[in-house]
Amino acid sequence: MPQRALGQADASPVLELRWRRAADATSRLTSPPPPSRYDEDCYLPRACAVTAEHVTDLPFREELPAQLRPRLEELVRATGDGGDAITRLAGWKLGGRPTWHLSHPAVFSCGGCGTAMTLLFTVASDDETGVVVGRWGEPRVFTCPADHRHPFRADLH
Rank of each mutant, 00 (worst) to 15 (best):
C144V: 11
V50H: 10
S12R: 06
Y38I: 04
R149F: 03
V107T: 10
L156C: 14
S27C: 08
G112E: 00
L89H: 04
G111N: 03
G82C: 13
G80V: 13
L156E: 07
G112S: 04
V133R: 01
G96S: 08
L58G: 02
I86V: 10
T99Q: 02
S31W: 04
A146Q: 15
L120T: 09
A22V: 15
A124S: 10
P70E: 08
A9T: 08
G96C: 06
A22I: 13
E73D: 15
K93R: 05
F108H: 12
E40I: 04
E128W: 02
C48Y: 03
G7K: 08
A52Q: 07
H150G: 02
L156D: 04
M117I: 07
E62P: 01
C42N: 14
E128Y: 07
S31G: 04
H148T: 06
P65K: 12
P65N: 08
T115P: 00
D41F: 05
L120N: 04
R97T: 12
P59G: 08
L89P: 00
R135E: 14
Q67M: 12
V107F: 02
P2Y: 09
A47E: 14
E63P: 01
G83N: 02
G96N: 06
T30Q: 11
M1C: 05
D57T: 01
V141P: 01
W92N: 10
P35H: 10
S36T: 14
R4T: 11
S27N: 03
A154S: 08
L15H: 13
T115V: 11
T51M: 10
D39T: 07
G130L: 07
T30P: 03
F121R: 15
P33L: 13
